[in-house]
Amino acid sequence: MRRWAAALGGTALVVAAWGIALVTPEDAEAERSFVVPVEIGDRGEGRNLAVTVTGIRAADAATIDGWVAEGPWLIVDLEAAAVQSELRAQLSHATLSVDGRTFRASERPPDSLFRSALAVGVPRSGSIAFELPEEVFGDDLAVLSLGLSADPRLDSLIELHLEPSSLDRVEEAELMSSGWAR
């Protein structure tokens, strides 16, 4: 083989290796969630989870069934149902990601759709509440994600983008009682 041919071949291989290293997905990609983007009022359906976010509210204090707590709070009203099976069909994953920080739906309200059981084909309605630091309400983007498993890897996630800074803050807001949506 001519010397220039060997050099060219070698260079081509190095470039090819570099290119493959660049396009190789990260390990996290292999277990990424399947995201279903939704808007307020849209029904989003993933694996065994169908969700309609019906409203988003901001309040200094949240209340339900005699429980009152200072926040501030971001309250998400929604309808949710299972699609295929009621086995392990609970809304166990509910997070709000803002500016690199992740918040988990609060376990504090005595009645909330968070971690509640869902029925196949018959939607339930209610609220989930996020207890947040004040500065989050000045942010322009927050991502709400809802899923069935506390570990959201490789499962569907219903995702909604919202703008916390545009929400009207009220003094006190009551969570919706959980119940059948219709």
Binding site: V83, Q84, S85, V120, G121
Partner: peptide, 12 residues
């Protein structure tokens, strides 16, 4: 069809 499955809802 979808072969959906329900648990009993006696209490609900």
């Amino acid at each position: 069809g979808a072969q959906r499955e329900w648990q009993h809802a006696t209490f609900e």
